[in-house]
Design a binder for these strands. Structure first.
Lengths: 190, 190
DNA sequence: CAGAGCGGAGAACGAGCGTTCTCCCTCGAT
DNA sequence: ATCGAGGGAGAACGCTCGTTCTCCGCTCTG
């Protein structure tokens, strides 16, 4: 059964995404992706010319998904302060997923950061993007120093992401939300 | 030139520590450790009967070093509040090191967490130990809810650790310290 | 001095990796 | 009906890995 290029590409990417995220990029062979996606090895290499390219596509895919889900949570909230806290509700939802394994970018960076400048760059861009979005929210909430407050909130988020992965509990999201609330109380004009 | 067992063990562990931390545990082969430590492959396998065992020794070694350095910073401070903030000064010092690459436990967990229960366990213990130490400090400072405050501080620490690694900057330590100060202001009795 | 045992250097082994190649079947155009 | 392009299955290639084995020279005891 042959399918068109776009469909095959999506199948491969979805299989790679699940495997890379679960086991780490180095531990997953191209053959495992081939088996999971049901595509022949020849076709796989037509769609993605190397494993490095597939890793890059995987990270870009994660980035898009993450931004979409974050935006959905934020846009569902109304007041500026609630929009900021919605980011932590998003984390809470994310941590609940049974296959939650931390941040794909942090994990990939830990594996390949020294040896793959591209992965290091993508991780850095992903986090910088998050910082930009948070800064927009703190600006909208009238923070006197939006960038600084956003950085505080990022630290809480990143901490919750790794801590939740290692302790296998979604609780850090709630604690991070509480701490964020305290910081907003201290730094937002009442 | 033959050396006694304890010395050889230390040499191997130091070589493994440097290589594992820099490149990740999976990317480093036993042969690279053998070359770096100057020990024969036969002897290496007498000292550590498998790579898994060496990885475990590496993580335990990192844990000891980390606890020692943290304790030194904390003990150099006087007042309870200063002792808490000293943890963030420790992070700042750590991040300055040119070979800083994030937390060995987070990185190893990202690489092997799904496949090696032992690594997952060691990472979890390491973080739980940090939590215990921080809770002692928040108790001594008279926090009404020491465990909760300690959790907030851990989130800031973990966030600073990963953010500093990815952005290649020590600045997150300073921001984390500032945010910690705000939380202490809000939650410690004046 | 003879012989036994230990350690060093590195070859060897079986497995798995990323990537390419071969073979064969299918299918559409002439 | 015939030819040819393209894709599927998977063998093959060259490499690296973790681990074991072989060989050889050294040293310590009688």
């Amino acid at each position: 059964m042959t399918v068109d290029t776009a469909t095959a590409q999506r199948q491969v990417l979805e299989a790679a995404d699940a495997l890379f995220y679960e086991r780490g990029v180095q531990a997953v062979g191209m053959d495992a992706i081939r088996t999971a996606s049901g595509v022949s090895l020849k076709r796989l290499y037509q769609l993605f010319s190397s494993k490095d390219e597939l890793i890059e596509a995987y990270l870009k895919h994660r980035d898009e998904l993450w931004n979409t889900m974050l935006a959905e949570h934020v846009d569902a909230a109304g007041e500026p302060r609630e929009r900021i806290l919605a980011a932590f509700d998003f984390l809470n939802d994310w941590f609940q997923q049974p296959d939650y394994r931390g941040c794909a970018f942090i994990n990939s960076f830990g594996e390949l950061g020294t040896v793959s400048p591209r992965v290091a760059e993508l991780a850095n861009e992903h986090k910088a993007d998050f910082q930009r979005r948070l800064t927009e929210l703190t600006e909208a909430a009238g923070a006197p120093d939006p960038a600084r407050l956003a950085e505080y909130l990022i630290l809480l988020s990143e901490g919750a992401i790794t801590r939740s992965a290692i302790s296998r509990s979604a609780e850090p999201a709630e604690r991070a939300r509480e701490a964020a609330g305290l910081l907003l109380d201290a730094l937002l004009p009442s």
